[in-house]
Amino acid sequence: MEYDREFLTGTVGVLILSLLAEREMYGYEILREAERRSARTFQLKEGTLYPALHQMERDRLLKATWRESAAGRQRKYYGLTAKGRRRAASKRRQWISIAGAMRAILGHAHA
């Protein structure tokens, strides 16, 4: 299904923060994990992930380190900083609240 871009705007940040709240990951891993969990709903233009990661790193929400992956290759792993954890929790609360409200509205409209 094709989604309007306006629906997806702002979701990349929440998606990155939520996934990294669980464990450290590298760029490609984040993309595949998002795709897997969303049952392929989130099929981002993959290149757009990196500017978002770099911006969050600059904003000190993420910290990055190069280390060996399970496959034995050097990968740049991103993890949340304390500020990133707070932001992730806040975004999560906001998102759940908005999603709940939208569900209520759409449910009413449907009924």
Binding site: Q43, K45, E46, G47, T48, Y50, P51
Partner: peptide
């Protein structure tokens, strides 16, 4: 899949 290089 990477998308437009100009945008990135």
């Amino acid at each position: 899949r990477f998308g437009e290089e100009r945008v990135v």
